[in-house]
Design a binder for these strands. Structure first.
Lengths: 203, 203
DNA sequence: GTCTATAGGCAGATAGAC
DNA sequence: GTCTATCTGCCTATAGAC
Protein backbone atom coordinates (compact mmCIF):
# COMPACT_ATOMS: atom_id res chain seq x y z
CA UNK A 1 0.00 0.00 0.00
CA UNK A 2 2.91 2.32 0.65
CA UNK A 3 4.56 2.56 -2.74
CA UNK A 4 6.36 5.44 -4.36
CA UNK A 5 5.37 8.98 -3.58
CA UNK A 6 2.79 10.53 -5.82
CA UNK A 7 2.27 14.03 -7.10
CA UNK A 8 0.53 15.24 -3.97
CA UNK A 9 2.95 13.34 -1.80
CA UNK A 10 0.29 10.94 -0.55
CA UNK A 11 -1.04 7.58 -1.56
CA UNK A 12 -4.70 7.20 -2.46
CA UNK A 13 -5.69 5.65 0.85
CA UNK A 14 -4.30 8.66 2.68
CA UNK A 15 -6.04 11.10 0.38
CA UNK A 16 -9.31 9.26 0.96
CA UNK A 17 -8.82 9.46 4.70
CA UNK A 18 -8.02 13.16 4.50
CA UNK A 19 -11.12 13.98 2.48
CA UNK A 20 -13.40 11.76 4.54
CA UNK A 21 -12.02 13.13 7.78
CA UNK A 22 -12.78 16.68 6.76
CA UNK A 23 -16.27 15.71 5.59
CA UNK A 24 -17.11 13.94 8.84
CA UNK A 25 -15.79 16.80 10.95
CA UNK A 26 -17.84 19.34 8.99
CA UNK A 27 -20.99 17.41 8.03
CA UNK A 28 -21.03 14.31 10.23
CA UNK A 29 -20.78 10.62 9.41
CA UNK A 30 -24.39 10.55 8.23
CA UNK A 31 -23.92 13.78 6.29
CA UNK A 32 -21.47 12.62 3.65
CA UNK A 33 -21.30 9.84 1.07
CA UNK A 34 -18.78 7.88 -0.94
CA UNK A 35 -19.83 10.06 -3.86
CA UNK A 36 -18.63 13.18 -2.00
CA UNK A 37 -15.19 11.68 -1.38
CA UNK A 38 -14.93 10.34 -4.93
CA UNK A 39 -15.79 13.74 -6.41
CA UNK A 40 -13.17 15.48 -4.32
CA UNK A 41 -10.45 13.04 -5.34
CA UNK A 42 -11.70 12.83 -8.92
CA UNK A 43 -11.90 9.07 -8.86
CA UNK A 44 -14.95 6.79 -8.92
CA UNK A 45 -16.91 5.41 -6.01
CA UNK A 46 -15.91 1.90 -7.06
CA UNK A 47 -12.25 2.78 -6.51
CA UNK A 48 -12.95 3.75 -2.93
CA UNK A 49 -14.20 0.25 -2.23
CA UNK A 50 -10.80 -1.11 -3.25
CA UNK A 51 -9.17 0.81 -0.39
CA UNK A 52 -11.94 0.57 2.20
CA UNK A 53 -14.43 -2.27 1.96
CA UNK A 54 -17.33 -0.11 3.10
CA UNK A 55 -18.29 3.06 4.89
CA UNK A 56 -18.09 1.32 8.27
CA UNK A 57 -14.49 0.24 7.67
CA UNK A 58 -13.57 3.71 6.44
CA UNK A 59 -15.11 5.13 9.60
CA UNK A 60 -13.05 2.81 11.79
CA UNK A 61 -9.86 3.78 9.99
CA UNK A 62 -10.73 7.47 10.42
CA UNK A 63 -11.07 7.22 14.19
CA UNK A 64 -7.98 5.06 14.53
CA UNK A 65 -5.81 7.52 12.63
CA UNK A 66 -7.32 10.49 14.43
CA UNK A 67 -6.77 8.93 17.85
CA UNK A 68 -3.19 7.99 16.97
CA UNK A 69 -2.36 11.52 15.84
CA UNK A 70 -4.01 12.99 18.89
CA UNK A 71 -2.11 10.60 21.12
CA UNK A 72 1.18 11.62 19.51
CA UNK A 73 0.38 15.27 20.11
CA UNK A 74 -0.35 14.48 23.74
CA UNK A 75 2.95 12.67 24.12
CA UNK A 76 4.74 15.65 22.66
CA UNK A 77 3.08 17.97 25.18
CA UNK A 78 3.69 15.56 28.01
CA UNK A 79 7.43 15.40 27.39
CA UNK A 80 7.82 19.16 27.08
CA UNK A 81 9.72 20.94 29.86
CA UNK A 82 6.71 23.03 30.92
CA UNK A 83 4.53 23.00 34.00
CA UNK A 84 1.13 21.32 34.14
CA UNK A 85 -0.80 24.56 33.67
CA UNK A 86 1.07 25.18 30.43
CA UNK A 87 0.32 21.64 29.34
CA UNK A 88 -3.37 22.30 29.76
CA UNK A 89 -3.04 25.40 27.62
CA UNK A 90 -1.29 23.35 24.96
CA UNK A 91 -4.08 20.79 25.20
CA UNK A 92 -6.73 23.45 24.64
CA UNK A 93 -4.77 24.73 21.67
CA UNK A 94 -5.20 21.34 19.97
CA UNK A 95 -8.93 21.93 20.10
CA UNK A 96 -8.65 25.56 19.03
CA UNK A 97 -6.68 24.51 15.96
CA UNK A 98 -9.44 22.14 14.91
CA UNK A 99 -12.08 24.81 15.39
CA UNK A 100 -10.08 27.36 13.43
CA UNK A 101 -10.28 24.98 10.47
CA UNK A 102 -14.06 25.29 10.91
CA UNK A 103 -14.25 21.68 12.00
CA UNK A 104 -15.68 19.85 14.99
CA UNK A 105 -13.58 17.33 16.90
CA UNK A 106 -13.99 14.08 14.95
CA UNK A 107 -14.99 12.10 18.01
CA UNK A 108 -17.19 14.88 19.35
CA UNK A 109 -19.12 14.76 16.10
CA UNK A 110 -19.31 10.97 16.27
CA UNK A 111 -20.47 11.19 19.88
CA UNK A 112 -23.52 13.09 18.67
CA UNK A 113 -24.24 10.42 16.05
CA UNK A 114 -23.20 7.64 18.41
CA UNK A 115 -26.44 5.67 18.31
CA UNK A 116 -26.35 5.39 14.51
CA UNK A 117 -22.75 4.08 14.32
CA UNK A 118 -21.61 0.49 13.80
CA UNK A 119 -20.32 -1.16 16.99
CA UNK A 120 -16.60 -1.01 16.13
CA UNK A 121 -16.85 2.73 15.58
CA UNK A 122 -18.71 3.16 18.86
CA UNK A 123 -15.98 1.32 20.74
CA UNK A 124 -13.29 3.43 19.09
CA UNK A 125 -15.04 6.66 20.09
CA UNK A 126 -15.16 5.53 23.72
CA UNK A 127 -11.47 4.67 23.61
CA UNK A 128 -10.62 8.15 22.35
CA UNK A 129 -12.33 9.84 25.27
CA UNK A 130 -10.86 7.37 27.76
CA UNK A 131 -7.35 8.09 26.52
CA UNK A 132 -7.89 11.83 26.68
CA UNK A 133 -9.18 11.64 30.21
CA UNK A 134 -6.35 9.39 31.35
CA UNK A 135 -3.79 11.81 29.93
CA UNK A 136 -5.48 14.81 31.52
CA UNK A 137 -5.74 13.05 34.85
CA UNK A 138 -1.99 12.51 34.88
CA UNK A 139 -1.34 16.15 34.04
CA UNK A 140 -3.72 17.29 36.77
CA UNK A 141 -2.00 15.09 39.33
CA UNK A 142 1.35 16.49 38.25
CA UNK A 143 0.05 20.03 38.49
CA UNK A 144 -1.33 19.45 41.94
CA UNK A 145 2.00 18.06 43.05
CA UNK A 146 4.10 20.87 41.66
CA UNK A 147 1.59 23.50 42.74
CA UNK A 148 0.76 24.95 39.33
CA UNK A 149 -2.81 23.63 39.50
CA UNK A 150 -5.42 23.54 42.23
CA UNK A 151 -8.77 21.84 42.13
CA UNK A 152 -11.32 20.22 44.38
CA UNK A 153 -12.40 16.60 44.09
CA UNK A 154 -10.70 13.84 42.15
CA UNK A 155 -8.34 14.42 39.25
CA UNK A 156 -10.44 11.96 37.29
CA UNK A 157 -13.58 14.05 37.68
CA UNK A 158 -11.68 17.21 36.82
CA UNK A 159 -10.34 15.56 33.67
CA UNK A 160 -13.84 14.63 32.56
CA UNK A 161 -14.97 18.17 33.21
CA UNK A 162 -12.21 19.53 30.99
CA UNK A 163 -13.00 17.19 28.10
CA UNK A 164 -16.73 17.96 28.39
CA UNK A 165 -16.27 21.71 28.55
CA UNK A 166 -13.88 21.85 25.60
CA UNK A 167 -16.00 19.57 23.42
CA UNK A 168 -19.06 21.60 24.32
CA UNK A 169 -17.32 24.89 23.61
CA UNK A 170 -16.40 23.59 20.15
CA UNK A 171 -19.93 22.37 19.55
CA UNK A 172 -21.60 25.65 20.47
CA UNK A 173 -18.97 27.93 18.95
CA UNK A 174 -19.17 26.39 15.50
CA UNK A 175 -22.61 27.76 14.56
CA UNK A 176 -21.36 31.22 15.49
CA UNK A 177 -18.23 30.72 13.39
CA UNK A 178 -16.44 32.58 16.15
CA UNK A 179 -13.16 31.11 17.44
CA UNK A 180 -12.98 33.85 20.09
CA UNK A 181 -16.06 32.33 21.65
CA UNK A 182 -14.20 29.07 22.19
CA UNK A 183 -11.12 30.85 23.43
CA UNK A 184 -13.02 32.75 26.09
CA UNK A 185 -14.57 29.56 27.42
CA UNK A 186 -11.27 27.70 27.49
CA UNK A 187 -9.52 30.52 29.35
CA UNK A 188 -12.30 30.80 31.90
CA UNK A 189 -12.20 27.04 32.40
CA UNK A 190 -8.49 26.93 33.11
CA UNK A 191 -8.59 30.04 35.24
CA UNK A 192 -10.71 28.09 37.68
CA UNK A 193 -8.02 25.40 37.83
CA UNK A 194 -4.97 27.61 37.96
CA UNK A 195 -3.47 27.91 41.42
CA UNK A 196 -2.95 31.60 40.82
CA UNK A 197 -6.70 32.03 40.54
CA UNK A 198 -6.91 31.13 44.21
CA UNK A 199 -5.09 34.34 44.93
CA UNK A 200 -6.62 37.00 42.74
CA UNK A 201 -9.99 36.95 41.01
CA UNK A 202 -8.64 38.70 37.94
CA UNK A 203 -7.21 36.39 35.28
CA UNK B 1 -55.74 21.44 12.56
CA UNK B 2 -56.88 21.57 16.17
CA UNK B 3 -60.01 19.48 16.12
CA UNK B 4 -61.42 17.13 18.74
CA UNK B 5 -59.14 15.18 21.00
CA UNK B 6 -58.10 11.80 19.72
CA UNK B 7 -57.47 8.50 21.44
CA UNK B 8 -53.95 9.37 22.52
CA UNK B 9 -54.99 12.88 23.47
CA UNK B 10 -52.96 14.49 20.68
CA UNK B 11 -53.61 15.51 17.14
CA UNK B 12 -51.54 14.02 14.33
CA UNK B 13 -49.29 17.04 13.92
CA UNK B 14 -48.31 16.81 17.59
CA UNK B 15 -47.67 13.09 17.38
CA UNK B 16 -45.46 13.68 14.35
CA UNK B 17 -43.50 16.33 16.22
CA UNK B 18 -43.11 14.04 19.24
CA UNK B 19 -41.78 11.15 17.18
CA UNK B 20 -39.52 13.33 15.04
CA UNK B 21 -38.18 15.14 18.08
CA UNK B 22 -37.15 11.91 19.73
CA UNK B 23 -35.57 10.64 16.50
CA UNK B 24 -33.52 13.81 16.02
CA UNK B 25 -32.36 13.85 19.63
CA UNK B 26 -31.26 10.23 19.42
CA UNK B 27 -30.09 9.83 15.81
CA UNK B 28 -29.67 13.35 14.45
CA UNK B 29 -31.47 15.23 11.69
CA UNK B 30 -29.53 13.34 9.03
CA UNK B 31 -30.07 10.07 10.83
CA UNK B 32 -33.82 9.70 10.49
CA UNK B 33 -36.34 9.70 7.65
CA UNK B 34 -40.02 10.30 7.02
CA UNK B 35 -40.30 6.52 6.81
CA UNK B 36 -39.15 6.22 10.43
CA UNK B 37 -41.78 8.66 11.66
CA UNK B 38 -44.49 7.11 9.50
CA UNK B 39 -43.71 3.63 10.82
CA UNK B 40 -43.86 4.78 14.42
CA UNK B 41 -47.24 6.45 13.92
CA UNK B 42 -48.53 3.69 11.67
CA UNK B 43 -49.50 6.09 8.92
CA UNK B 44 -47.97 6.56 5.47
CA UNK B 45 -45.16 8.88 4.45
CA UNK B 46 -47.58 10.71 2.18
CA UNK B 47 -49.72 11.67 5.17
CA UNK B 48 -46.76 13.36 6.82
CA UNK B 49 -46.48 15.72 3.89
CA UNK B 50 -50.03 16.91 4.57
CA UNK B 51 -48.94 18.20 7.98
CA UNK B 52 -45.41 19.32 7.15
CA UNK B 53 -44.54 20.23 3.57
CA UNK B 54 -41.06 18.74 3.78
CA UNK B 55 -38.33 17.67 6.14
CA UNK B 56 -36.98 21.22 6.33
CA UNK B 57 -40.34 22.60 7.49
CA UNK B 58 -40.69 19.78 10.00
CA UNK B 59 -37.24 20.63 11.30
CA UNK B 60 -38.14 24.28 11.75
CA UNK B 61 -41.30 23.36 13.64
CA UNK B 62 -39.28 21.03 15.87
CA UNK B 63 -36.84 23.72 16.95
CA UNK B 64 -39.57 26.30 17.41
CA UNK B 65 -41.58 24.06 19.71
CA UNK B 66 -38.49 22.93 21.59
CA UNK B 67 -37.31 26.49 22.13
CA UNK B 68 -40.77 27.57 23.27
CA UNK B 69 -41.00 24.77 25.81
CA UNK B 70 -37.51 25.45 27.04
CA UNK B 71 -38.31 29.14 27.35
CA UNK B 72 -41.38 28.35 29.40
CA UNK B 73 -39.33 26.18 31.74
CA UNK B 74 -36.85 29.02 32.14
CA UNK B 75 -39.63 31.47 32.99
CA UNK B 76 -40.91 29.04 35.58
CA UNK B 77 -37.48 28.83 37.20
CA UNK B 78 -36.96 32.56 36.98
CA UNK B 79 -40.15 33.37 38.84
CA UNK B 80 -39.48 30.83 41.61
CA UNK B 81 -38.66 32.21 45.07
CA UNK B 82 -35.17 30.70 45.12
CA UNK B 83 -31.72 32.22 44.99
CA UNK B 84 -29.63 32.37 41.82
CA UNK B 85 -27.50 29.37 42.77
CA UNK B 86 -30.63 27.26 43.08
CA UNK B 87 -31.81 28.55 39.73
CA UNK B 88 -28.62 27.28 38.14
CA UNK B 89 -29.21 23.89 39.71
CA UNK B 90 -32.73 23.88 38.28
CA UNK B 91 -31.30 24.85 34.90
CA UNK B 92 -28.86 21.93 34.98
CA UNK B 93 -31.71 19.62 35.91
CA UNK B 94 -33.43 20.48 32.62
CA UNK B 95 -30.40 19.04 30.85
CA UNK B 96 -30.17 16.04 33.15
CA UNK B 97 -33.78 15.16 32.42
CA UNK B 98 -33.08 15.12 28.69
CA UNK B 99 -30.03 12.93 29.17
CA UNK B 100 -31.92 10.51 31.42
CA UNK B 101 -34.26 9.92 28.48
CA UNK B 102 -31.10 8.88 26.60
CA UNK B 103 -31.41 11.92 24.36
CA UNK B 104 -29.10 14.75 23.37
CA UNK B 105 -30.27 18.36 23.59
CA UNK B 106 -32.13 18.95 20.32
CA UNK B 107 -30.15 22.07 19.50
CA UNK B 108 -26.89 20.56 20.66
CA UNK B 109 -27.44 17.76 18.17
CA UNK B 110 -28.34 20.26 15.47
CA UNK B 111 -25.26 22.31 16.30
CA UNK B 112 -23.14 19.30 15.34
CA UNK B 113 -24.99 18.96 12.04
CA UNK B 114 -25.20 22.72 11.61
CA UNK B 115 -23.46 22.93 8.25
CA UNK B 116 -25.89 20.49 6.64
CA UNK B 117 -29.05 22.28 7.81
CA UNK B 118 -31.31 24.58 5.76
CA UNK B 119 -30.86 28.25 6.60
CA UNK B 120 -34.08 28.70 8.60
CA UNK B 121 -33.08 25.82 10.87
CA UNK B 122 -29.61 27.30 11.31
CA UNK B 123 -31.07 30.62 12.39
CA UNK B 124 -33.42 28.92 14.84
CA UNK B 125 -30.53 27.02 16.45
CA UNK B 126 -28.62 30.25 16.98
CA UNK B 127 -31.67 31.86 18.54
CA UNK B 128 -32.00 28.98 21.00
CA UNK B 129 -28.47 29.43 22.30
CA UNK B 130 -28.82 33.21 22.40
CA UNK B 131 -31.95 32.94 24.52
CA UNK B 132 -30.31 30.49 26.90
CA UNK B 133 -27.29 32.71 27.35
CA UNK B 134 -29.39 35.81 27.89
CA UNK B 135 -31.42 34.04 30.58
CA UNK B 136 -28.30 32.70 32.28
CA UNK B 137 -26.64 36.10 32.17
CA UNK B 138 -29.57 37.63 34.05
CA UNK B 139 -29.44 34.88 36.68
CA UNK B 140 -25.70 35.35 37.10
CA UNK B 141 -26.10 39.09 37.57
CA UNK B 142 -28.81 38.46 40.13
CA UNK B 143 -26.61 35.95 41.93
CA UNK B 144 -23.70 38.33 42.02
CA UNK B 145 -25.94 41.02 43.46
CA UNK B 146 -27.45 38.87 46.18
CA UNK B 147 -24.13 37.18 46.93
CA UNK B 148 -25.11 33.59 46.14
CA UNK B 149 -22.77 33.47 43.14
CA UNK B 150 -19.25 34.68 42.54
CA UNK B 151 -17.34 34.65 39.30
CA UNK B 152 -14.60 36.52 37.50
CA UNK B 153 -15.08 38.30 34.21
CA UNK B 154 -18.36 39.21 32.54
CA UNK B 155 -21.66 37.52 33.27
CA UNK B 156 -22.04 37.07 29.52
CA UNK B 157 -18.83 35.05 29.27
CA UNK B 158 -19.80 33.00 32.30
CA UNK B 159 -23.18 32.26 30.74
CA UNK B 160 -21.53 31.00 27.57
CA UNK B 161 -19.23 28.84 29.63
CA UNK B 162 -22.19 27.24 31.38
CA UNK B 163 -24.04 26.49 28.15
CA UNK B 164 -20.89 25.06 26.58
CA UNK B 165 -19.98 22.90 29.54
CA UNK B 166 -23.47 21.46 29.95
CA UNK B 167 -23.90 20.75 26.24
CA UNK B 168 -20.47 19.15 26.18
CA UNK B 169 -21.19 17.07 29.25
CA UNK B 170 -24.34 15.75 27.57
CA UNK B 171 -22.45 15.03 24.36
CA UNK B 172 -19.66 13.07 26.01
CA UNK B 173 -21.83 11.34 28.62
CA UNK B 174 -24.22 9.85 26.09
CA UNK B 175 -21.82 7.25 24.63
CA UNK B 176 -21.13 6.06 28.16
CA UNK B 177 -24.87 5.87 28.87
CA UNK B 178 -23.98 7.14 32.33
CA UNK B 179 -26.08 9.99 33.76
CA UNK B 180 -23.79 10.15 36.79
CA UNK B 181 -21.04 11.30 34.48
CA UNK B 182 -23.09 14.34 33.52
CA UNK B 183 -24.08 14.99 37.11
CA UNK B 184 -20.50 15.07 38.32
CA UNK B 185 -19.52 17.58 35.65
CA UNK B 186 -22.49 19.84 36.35
CA UNK B 187 -21.81 19.85 40.09
CA UNK B 188 -18.15 20.62 39.60
CA UNK B 189 -19.06 23.42 37.22
CA UNK B 190 -21.40 25.13 39.63
CA UNK B 191 -19.09 24.58 42.55
CA UNK B 192 -16.66 26.91 40.85
CA UNK B 193 -19.38 29.57 40.64
CA UNK B 194 -20.83 29.21 44.10
CA UNK B 195 -19.81 31.99 46.45
CA UNK B 196 -19.10 29.39 49.12
CA UNK B 197 -16.36 27.97 46.92
CA UNK B 198 -14.61 31.29 47.21
CA UNK B 199 -12.96 30.20 50.42
CA UNK B 200 -10.25 32.72 50.82
CA UNK B 201 -10.00 34.79 47.63
CA UNK B 202 -12.31 36.05 44.91
CA UNK B 203 -13.83 39.39 45.76
C1' DG C 1 -56.79 13.53 6.51
C1' DT C 2 -55.25 9.42 4.85
C1' DC C 3 -54.50 6.43 1.35
C1' DT C 4 -52.11 3.99 -3.17
C1' DA C 5 -49.00 4.55 -6.60
C1' DT C 6 -45.16 6.37 -8.49
C1' DA C 7 -41.70 9.55 -9.84
C1' DG C 8 -36.73 10.78 -9.78
C1' DG C 9 -32.68 10.73 -7.41
C1' DC C 10 -28.98 9.19 -4.47
C1' DA C 11 -27.28 5.75 -1.20
C1' DG C 12 -23.80 1.86 -0.47
C1' DA C 13 -22.13 -1.89 -2.83
C1' DT C 14 -20.52 -5.49 -6.47
C1' DA C 15 -18.89 -7.76 -10.98
C1' DG C 16 -15.76 -7.83 -14.21
C1' DA C 17 -12.90 -5.41 -17.95
C1' DC C 18 -8.58 -3.06 -18.44
C1' DG D 1 -5.71 0.38 -8.89
C1' DT D 2 -9.07 2.33 -11.48
C1' DC D 3 -12.60 2.02 -14.50
C1' DT D 4 -17.77 1.20 -16.57
C1' DA D 5 -21.95 -0.66 -15.73
C1' DT D 6 -25.33 -2.11 -12.88
C1' DC D 7 -28.01 -3.63 -8.80
C1' DT D 8 -30.99 -3.02 -4.99
C1' DG D 9 -32.81 -0.28 -1.78
C1' DC D 10 -34.07 3.92 0.50
C1' DC D 11 -34.74 8.80 0.20
C1' DT D 12 -37.92 13.04 -0.34
C1' DA D 13 -41.71 14.39 -2.69
C1' DT D 14 -46.05 14.60 -5.62
C1' DA D 15 -50.57 13.31 -7.98
C1' DG D 16 -54.87 12.02 -7.37
C1' DA D 17 -58.54 8.66 -5.41
C1' DC D 18 -61.36 8.09 -1.36
Amino acid sequence: MAGKRQQKGQDTATRILDAAERLVQVRGFNGFSYADVAAELEITKASLHYHFAGKAELGEALIERYATRFGEALTQIETSPIDAAAKLDAYAKLYADVLRAKRMCLCGMLAAEYRTLPKPMQNAVIRFFDENEAWLEAVLVQGQGEGSLAFAGSASDAARMIVSALEGAMLVSRPYADPARFQATAERLFASLSSSSALAPSR
